[in-house]
Computed example of a mutant assay.
Amino acid sequence: MPTVWWAERNQCESILDIVGMCGTGPLVAIALCLLIAGVLANQQRTFRFHPNSIRYNVNNNRPIIGILSQEPSKSIASVSPESVSYIAASYVKWLEGQGARVVPIKVNQPDSYYKTVFDSINGRLLIPGGGASLVSSGYGKAGSILYDLAIEANNNGDFFPVWGTCLGFELLLYLSAGRKNFLTPCNSYNRAASLKFISDASVSRLYQRAPNDVLKTLSKEKSTSNFHHWCMTKENLTASSLDNFYRPLATSTDDDGLEFVATIEAIDYPFWGVQFHPEKNVYEWGANLTSVPHWPSAIKAGQYFAEFFVNQARKSQHRFASRQEEATYLIYNYAPLYTANVSSSFLQSYFFD
């Protein structure tokens, strides 16, 4: 599949479009057209999306998305020493900019807390945790509980989307591999990169309907912001059998030329992950973040991912028992603090006891 698949898709937006075009014309042309349609149909069937019937309300104009908090580093903790977890404000703004509201998900809470939050929010965003352990941290443990709840819900036809960014991307891979780590060290910190789309991107839910200019920006410009020391290679994705759960959609390269998976999409579940940081393009301006792309096309590309995920969350029927209970959980109960003076990564952060 050529990397410019989006440039010509306006002529054949779907398999039905192609079949419709096959109705007239010379026999050879008709046969070729039907062959192309068949190939694309087989490609699309590799993304089964969901094994059971899906129940969702597409008219949910009050989506609420949970963001998993994480233990702070020593520098960030110095801003609010009594707090045990935090969320970078850029993730909150990223979702709010697309019409969603946010509920912070705290770490080190009883299982009943996570079940209550899960039943009440329309989607969950896993955020990067810096040096947080995928295994022993409160971030990793809470993420594991919520992941299992999301698997169970979707298996029962209860649509519940999950998004992972950077460490969240890595956490999804770790959990989906049966709590085994198949990541490899890499050198992609404070690095802007382009995406090399894999053939499955053209039939993926994430990229299939993305605007042409966004796809062009992602593939032709160094428009993704990378801040990670661990990577998933295509070889490890296959060796771990994770390619039975996720399809890689795009890759990038690190400072040493190592090609790593940059975007994944689950085959049977509404789960997505990106190794890069789409929120930084819009909202992070730390003096040491020299690689973050802030030009207009890169900003639009970063916002596209938030728009996509928020629209997925609109399909979920989860809700709080009442508006009063909802109000007690929302991020508006907290005020962000300035953290750029102690952290090179985040301008503002929310802190939680």
Rank of each mutant, 00 (worst) to 15 (best):
Lys74Ser: 06
Leu16Ile: 15
Leu167Gly: 04
Gln324Thr: 07
Asp17Arg: 12
Arg247Asp: 15
Ser188Cys: 14
Asn42Gln: 10
Phe309Asn: 02
Gln98Glu: 12
Pro104Lys: 10
Ser225Lys: 07
Tyr189Ile: 15
Glu152Gly: 03
Asn236Ser: 05
Ile36Lys: 12
Tyr304Pro: 05
Leu95Phe: 09
Val261Glu: 01
Val342Pro: 03
Tyr147Ser: 08
Ile267Arg: 05
Val282His: 15
Arg247Thr: 15
Glu8Asp: 11
Ala239Trp: 00
Tyr332Ser: 15
Tyr246Met: 00
Pro278Tyr: 05
Ser14Arg: 05
Asp256Gly: 00
Phe49Arg: 15
Gly273Leu: 05
Glu96Arg: 08
Ile151Gln: 02
Pro248Asn: 06
Tyr329Ile: 06
Ser85Ala: 08
Arg45Asp: 15
Phe118Gln: 01
Arg323Ala: 10
Ser69Met: 00
Leu175Asn: 05
Thr165Ser: 12
Arg205Lys: 13
Ala266Met: 08
Gly38Arg: 04
Gly168Ile: 11
Asn155Ser: 13
Lys196Val: 15
Glu82Cys: 01
Gly157Ala: 07
Ile264Ser: 03
Ala250Ser: 14
Thr46Leu: 09
Gln317Trp: 01
Ile30Phe: 01
Ala31Cys: 07
Thr251Ser: 08
Ala340Phe: 03
Gly138Arg: 06
Phe197Arg: 03
Leu330Ala: 04
Ala266Gln: 02
Glu325Lys: 14
Lys115Asn: 06
Ser199Lys: 10
Ile145Gln: 08
His229Asp: 12
Arg55Glu: 08
Phe305Ser: 12
Thr328Asn: 03
Thr263Asn: 12
Trp163Tyr: 14
Pro185Phe: 11
Gln11Ser: 14
Tyr174Ile: 04
Ala287Tyr: 00
Ala77Phe: 00
Ser69Cys: 09
Thr263Gln: 14
His318Ser: 04
Ile54Trp: 03
Lys115His: 12
Gly168Asp: 06
Asn10Val: 14
Asp119Leu: 04
Leu134Phe: 09
Gly23Asn: 14
Ala177Cys: 13
Glu235Arg: 06
Ile264Met: 06
Glu326Ser: 11
Thr224Pro: 07
Ser83Pro: 01
Gly138Ser: 14
Leu35Val: 10
Cys33Arg: 03
Leu237Arg: 00
Leu126Glu: 09
Phe346Trp: 09
Leu175Ala: 04
Tyr113Cys: 07
Thr184Lys: 00
Leu175Asp: 03
Met1Gly: 14
Asn281Ile: 06
Phe227Ile: 07
Phe47Thr: 12
Gly123Arg: 02
Ser297Val: 11
Ser345Asn: 12
Thr3Arg: 10
Gln275Phe: 13
Asn156Asp: 05
Arg9Phe: 02
Phe351Thr: 01
Met232Leu: 15
Arg205Ala: 11
Ser194Lys: 13
Arg179His: 14
Phe309Asp: 01
Tyr147Val: 11
Ala29Asn: 11
Asn341Ile: 06
Glu326Met: 11
Trp230Val: 10
